[in-house]
Amino acid sequence: MRIDETTLQVLFERSDHYLKLMLFFGIAGWIGFLFLKKEDKTNPTMVYSLGILLHIAFYEFLASILAAQQINNHWVYNIFNGHIGSILFLLLIRNLLKKKTHRRIVLYFIAALLLISGALHFNGIASLHDGGEYIALVNTVFILSSCSLYFFELITMDENLAINPLKSFSFWVTTIVLFYFSSSFMIYISYVYLYTHHLDIFYMVYEIPRHMSLLCNLLLCLGIYSKVMEKNFELEIIHV
């Protein structure tokens, strides 16, 4: 794959607000991370948030470069979104959990995701060059289950009952992650059918996970900057 000036020109001429905002969030998150205190830079929540921002910016840019060169980019989303991205989100949610048992369960989810994915690819059921429907089903189930553990802790643990969820960074991030993966899954399972038979509907519903992804990355970026403006946020629920 060769990236020349013509390719970049075609890329930015055809790219919409989505790619540009994803790149902006990645750069802004990295700049904000540089301004954190030394102890905050070792905060797992900050590290995972920055990792997700940079990771998404990278693979969206890579996928767009391939699309500009008219090269199939399904493998980019299957590897970086379906696998690595899902694991990063699982690690972020795990870091927001308080009970050791629940945190251990999320690690089991990650191991199961890798084992099931490996089995699907080994048996030829899933491919890196398909729409990623089966992997989307697997990672969505595990991520939604992890989100459920967070909400279970939120309503059952005494130390969480005194926290206003509407002012909690972890509550909003978990909620957005839940809606992002659930909406994305609905698109993935109907991707081929809608694209083939109802292209107009496809383009309408296709915007739902894109906007949820933008909102998720915006919150992660704000989470990094919240450590600079700590007095305006309630961060007690976040593990430091």
Rank of each mutant, 00 (worst) to 15 (best):
F181V: 09
N164V: 09
S168K: 04
P165H: 07
Y203E: 14
W172I: 04
H197F: 15
W172F: 11
Y150M: 05
S170K: 08
S184Y: 10
I155Q: 09
L194K: 01
L161H: 14
N160Q: 12
E159F: 11
H198D: 12
I143M: 09
L161F: 13
F202M: 10
I189K: 04
N139L: 02
P165F: 08
S145R: 00
F152Q: 11
F179P: 00
F171P: 01
V141C: 03
S182G: 07
L137K: 05
V177I: 15
Y150D: 05
F151V: 08
A162Y: 11
M157E: 15
L137G: 06
Y191M: 04
I135F: 03
S184G: 01
P165W: 12
I143F: 02
F142Q: 03
A136K: 00
F179W: 07
V138T: 03
W172V: 05
F202T: 06
T140D: 02
K167M: 13
T174S: 12
L166G: 09
F151M: 06
T140H: 01
D158Y: 12
Y188T: 02
F181C: 00
S183Q: 03
F179Y: 08
I201G: 01
S170N: 11
L194C: 03
F152M: 13
E153F: 07
I187A: 04
S182V: 10
N160G: 05
L199G: 01
S168W: 06
Y188W: 03
I201D: 11
I189G: 00
S148N: 06
V141A: 14
I189N: 00
L166W: 15
H197G: 01
V173C: 06
T156P: 03
H198G: 02
L199V: 13
F169H: 04
N164R: 03
D158K: 15
S148K: 07
H197A: 09
N164P: 03
K167R: 13
T175N: 05
S184V: 01
T140C: 07
F152A: 08
V177C: 04
N139W: 07
K167I: 10
I143Q: 05
F151Q: 07
P165M: 09
Y188P: 00
N160Y: 15
T196N: 10
Y193E: 08
F202S: 05
Y195Q: 11
V138Q: 01
A162R: 14
I176M: 12
I176A: 08
F171T: 11
Y188Q: 03
I187S: 01
L178A: 14
L137W: 10
F202Y: 15
I176Q: 10
N139G: 00
S146Y: 04
S146F: 06
A136C: 09
I155T: 14
D200C: 02
L144V: 14
I187K: 06
E153G: 05
V138K: 00
F142L: 15
Y191W: 14
I143E: 04
V138M: 01
I187Y: 09
Y191G: 00
V138N: 00
F185N: 04
P165G: 07
S190L: 12
S168D: 15
F142E: 03
H197M: 10
E159C: 10
V138P: 01
T175M: 14
F185R: 01
A162H: 11
L144G: 10
N164D: 15
S190Y: 08
S184W: 06
F151G: 05
L149N: 09
S146H: 03
I176G: 03
L149M: 10
L166R: 08
F179Q: 02
S183R: 02
F181S: 00
H197Y: 15
Y193I: 08
